[in-house]
Design a binder for these strands. Structure first.
Lengths: 199, 199
DNA sequence: ACCTGAACACCGTTCAAGT
DNA sequence: ACCTGAACACCGTTCAAGT
């Protein structure tokens, strides 16, 4: 006796939730459309009513991941200004990645095409905008040189993204949250110092 | 009539080469053990004589990727010292990633376990050592503060790795090699400046 | 040692059909 | 509209068997 199937169009979200749970347990490569359908108590072809194909569901998972990331960053940086704000965003970025490694791999591992998956793409851009606005704050506070805001934000993003990826792959010895915070802060302070040197 | 099958134990390398070619064409998720066997003109169970399973072959692919990366970095940095050396390593790292995106994804996307795949792990560590030795060179030239060599190298690695990953995902607007080199140099100069600020 | 073919339990996707 | 079951062409892996 299966539990009652989903109705009223909430199947779409149920499938996304099931997918996120499955990915968390089995990793991105253990993710299977048929198993997702099983978890939603629905036939294995039902997902095709809501997603073009497997990749389309993965894009929806990525979109939710970007939304969650934006929320986590906004929360961490609330009220903070200038460099403090930038650092908190960085710590939140890496913390989110380490806490949801499989989800993060989906977000950045699926070669997101803006044409094919515009919603996921936009959600990703919105997460990046948090960094852009923090850089702007730093520039207004004269702790970063004016101009080239986008370029500065991209450098900061690269640093923080690299830390996140290497941490997920266990290639950095960051075992505790203290170590993680310390490393991110050291790295971002260094970068900020160098950027303010040569305007 | 298939071409003559491989003999004399060169099948292992033939499978690795076929795998790299297949990954280049179809991406990491299009990679299939059976298709690799087909390309090597061998039955689909023959690979199991040389690799425990699909992941074991992927680890061998990753190992070769790390070896290639080390060679490319060594070549790019030949004769250069201090900051110039560090920058050239970074440019070579990102260039390699952008030129072999699928291979790079395998190297860093497969959650390499040092116990299960020691050879691939060692090859990865050797690539990282190039950064460590360049940081040491910088310290001896007094362009970076002494001590904490490993930590400084890890920060540099994170930056360069983040640029590589974002560039592969087309999330940075680096269309030409000039733009790529310029961005890596800007980023690494900034980081170096900041690191030398606060010893 | 090295390779094969059959077999098993899975996939993603399509399609005609049901409510 | 939304969901289903059968069908197709694939997988990864195991196993008995052949040279």
């Amino acid at each position: 006796m299966p539990a009652k199937p989903y109705h009223h169009g909430n199947l779409r979200q149920a499938l996304i939730d099931a997918a996120i749970g499955l990915i968390q347990e089995s990793g991105p490569e253990g993710f299977t459309l048929r198993e997702v359908a099983r978890r939603a108590h629905v036939s294995h072809t039902a997902p095709y009513r809501h997603f073009r194909d497997k990749n389309d569901l993965l894009a929806a998972v990525a979109e939710q991941g970007f939304t969650d990331l934006s929320r986590a960053m906004a929360e961490a940086a609330r009220g903070a200004k200038a460099l403090d704000r930038l650092q908190r965003l960085g710590v939140a970025y890496v913390t989110s990645a380490v806490e949801h490694p499989a989800h993060f791999r989906v977000m950045f591992g699926m070669q997101l095409d803006p044409k094919a998956h515009p919603a996921a793409w936009v959600a990703g851009q919105e997460a990046f905008q948090a960094l852009v606005s923090a850089v702007t704050t730093c520039q207004e506070a004269n702790v970063l040189p004016k101009g080239h805001t986008l370029t500065l934000a991209r450098v900061a993003w690269s640093l923080v993204h690299g830390i996140a990826q290497l941490a997920i792959g266990r290639l950095l010895p960051l075992r505790t949250r203290r170590e993680l915070t310390g490393f991110v802060n050291l790295a971002s302070r260094s970068l900020a110092g160098g950027l303010s040197d040569k305007p």
